[in-house]
């Protein structure tokens, strides 16, 4: 880090944060393509939730969507993923039906456990610890959310380096971890 700014001097006494995006980023300027994409997403949301098509409501929608898109277009679409956006959404499109099918299977498994008369001897609650191969932050978060969304397994903690702690309800839920879900959620983000 060669450039010394005023922010460096003012925070000299404090602990330096890991990622300070204000230092690394150049000056804030509006990038047109993320702005347009954000505006279109916001506008379609407005039309769906409003349901009115007279000029008054549409003008209100355009004004508020312009403000929101100006303020937060760099939050929805970050610079590194701009080129990979079609790949990303295509990956989600292929990943989500598979995830839904896994959710259905896990639901039927937990359903059998709930109505089993000898339930207390069939369950075996346990904590499973494993280390994931994924490196990308978003891939890790998607993987953790997918684990929590399937009944029978809940992510308890997740570190930055991919150390998972998962609470599982019985052996049949615990044994296939990390399984296919890790590679499939990693494939969305190109790993």
């Amino acid at each position: 880090m060669t450039l010394t700014t005023r922010a460096d001097k003012s925070t000299a006494g404090m602990v330096k944060p890991l990622h300070d995006s204000r230092e690394n980023a150049p000056e804030r300027r509006l990038r047109p393509i993320p702005f347009i994409i954000t505006f279109l997403v916001m506008m379609s949301m407005w039309v769906i939730f409003s349901g009115k098509f007279d000029p008054f409501h549409l003008t209100l929608g355009v004004i508020s969507c312009l403000i929101v898109a100006y303020l937060s277009s760099d939050l929805l679409i970050t610079a590194t993923t701009l080129r990979k956006i079609p790949l990303l959404w295509g990956g989600f499109l292929f990943y989500f039906p598979w995830l839904l099918w896994q959710i259905v299977l896990a639901n039927i498994h937990v359903l059998k456990l709930v109505f089993h008369p000898d339930m207390i001897n069939r369950i075996n609650p346990q904590m499973v610890h494993f280390k994931s191969k994924l490196k990308n932050d978003m891939a890790l978060v998607t993987f953790a959310n997918s684990i929590t969304l399937t009944p029978g397994t809940i992510t308890v903690s997740l570190s930055l380096y991919g150390d998972f702690s998962v609470h599982a309800i019985d052996d049949a839920s615990a044994s296939p971890l990390p399984g296919d879900m890790e590679s499939k959620s990693g494939r969305i983000f190109g790993e």
Binding site: I103, V110, M119, I120, T148, L149, T150, P151, I154, I169
Partner: peptide
Amino acid sequence: GIIRFPDFYSRLHPAGMIDSM
């Protein structure tokens, strides 16, 4: 399932079943 399961951690699994399916 929320009524039958033995402790707090295992009761969360049927609660997730309500939310998902």
